[in-house]
């Protein structure tokens, strides 16, 4: 019985942790959208900034991957 409750909590926690991925999605979309907006405004400067686009996406995405990792840990490791 006690183990079932722990397991239930772990599953609920895993589901909640997945909410964090939504935040990462917003963040990545924000980075890409702002890049696109800037690129349309000044297309000649866009090519030089793709590296920063990917760096920004990587930082935003990392946090989503952390939440995914927390979910996985709750599912499989706790």
């Amino acid at each position: 019985m006690e183990g079932d409750i722990v397991q239930m909590g772990a599953y609920i926690g895993a589901g909640l942790a997945c909410l964090g991925m939504g935040g990462a999605g917003i963040g990545v979309g924000h980075v890409a959208g702002n890049y696109l907006a800037g690129a349309l405004r000044n297309p000649s400067a866009a090519a030089g900034q793709t590296a920063f686009l990917f760096i920004g996406i990587a930082f935003a995405e990392a946090l989503g991957i952390f939440s995914f990792l927390v979910a996985l840990l709750l599912m499989f490791a706790v």
Partner: peptide, 11 residues
């Protein structure tokens, strides 16, 4: 988790 103990570590 009892289950993971049975079938090795989950991850």
């Amino acid at each position: 988790m009892a289950e993971s103990a049975a079938s090795g570590p989950g991850m």
